[in-house]
């Protein structure tokens, strides 16, 4: 199984990975009708990067993802993915993992059927899996630790397994770019840690990863590069460089405390509710 996975990953890793930007936005203005979310945004993400976008609720993170994914057209400007205009790239070039909160967990699908969906644009029309497809799915499920629950309904598996199932669906089509919408939300801290480590492993195999998250501590401890976003780019760089009081206050609009502890950054709100005082 490990051999199959290695062959799979060699195929995934693009040979021209470093030759051009994975994502290039030039002068992009986005919005809904007359409501502009951000203006004139230019952003370039090189192939092979592992980047998190952080920012407050309704700051335009999801709009930015939708623009990059081609789900929403930009009002002005251009969006290119691996040197192709967004939307004209070959199906399967981009892998996408939605927010778990947006998934209909009552839908009658097994883990295997969800992973299968990633193969639905490969030009095969038969409803059943071919032998090659089945081998790919089993190898991917084995790699991501969901092999034992392939035939279980998606509601009967743990939060971590759910995240891995959708990750498997995104990776099965051998994408060059993987985009995740808040993969750390709705899962416990241990699962969060596992998922981010797994994403780190996938990134080391050559896949560019872009994710959005609200969890600054998870970003600080797991991601090499971060973009602070609030209706436009505030700053980008390594978490240790840009998670400063000034930048985070500018991003979130409130006082934030940053503590360095044994080489880790810990980020918290500066004015927590003190229940102990209230009970005195």
């Amino acid at each position: 199984m490990q051999h199959v996975w290695q062959v799979l990953m060699q195929a995934i890793t693009p040979s021209d990975a470093q030759s051009h930007a994975a994502i290039k936005l030039t002068g992009v203005t986005a919005g809904y009708g007359k409501h502009i979310v951000f203006r004139d945004l230019s952003l370039e993400i090189a192939s092979g990067q592992f980047i998190g976008i952080v920012g407050p609720t309704a700051c335009g993170k999801t709009t930015l993802l939708k623009i990059i994914l081609g789900v929403q057209p930009a009002i002005t400007g251009t969006v290119r993915l691996h040197n192709h205009c967004v939307g004209s790239a070959k199906p399967g070039t981009v892998g996408y993992v939605p927010q778990l909160g947006s998934v209909d967990w009552t839908f009658p699908v097994t883990v295997e059927e969800v992973i299968m969906m990633g193969l639905y644009t490969n030009g095969r029309y038969w409803p059943w899996l071919s032998k090659t497809e089945r081998i790919s799915i089993h190898a991917m499920a084995d790699r991501l630790g969901v092999y034992d629950c392939l035939h279980q309904h998606i509601v009967n598996i743990s939060g971590g397994q759910r995240q891995r199932t959708f990750l498997a669906r995104a990776l099965i089509n051998r994408p060059k770019l993987l985009i995740l919408d808040e993969p750390t939300s709705g899962v416990d801290i241990k699962t969060q840690h596992e998922v981010l480590h797994l994403l780190g492993d996938i990134n080391r195999e050559g896949i560019t990863i872009l994710l959005t998250t609200h969890d600054l501590n998870a970003v600080a401890s797991h991601l090499p590069w971060v973009i602070c976003f609030n209706r436009g780019m505030i700053a980008q760089g390594r978490p240790s460089d840009i998670f400063t009081n000034e930048i985070l206050t500018q991003t979130y609009g409130g006082d934030i405390v940053i503590v360095k502890h044994e080489g880790h950054l810990l980020i918290a709100n500066s004015t927590p509710l003190n229940f102990m005082d209230d009970t005195k």
């Binding site: 789900v71 070959k90 996408y96 209909d104 059927e113 969906m117 639905y120 409803p127």
Partner: peptide, 18 residues
């Protein structure tokens, strides 16, 4: 395949090229 994917997750199906 395309009917199942777009019924389960319309937006993701579109992103995946359906």
């Amino acid at each position: 395949r395309t009917l199942l994917f777009s019924t389960f997750d319309h937006e993701a199906a579109r992103i995946f090229g359906v």
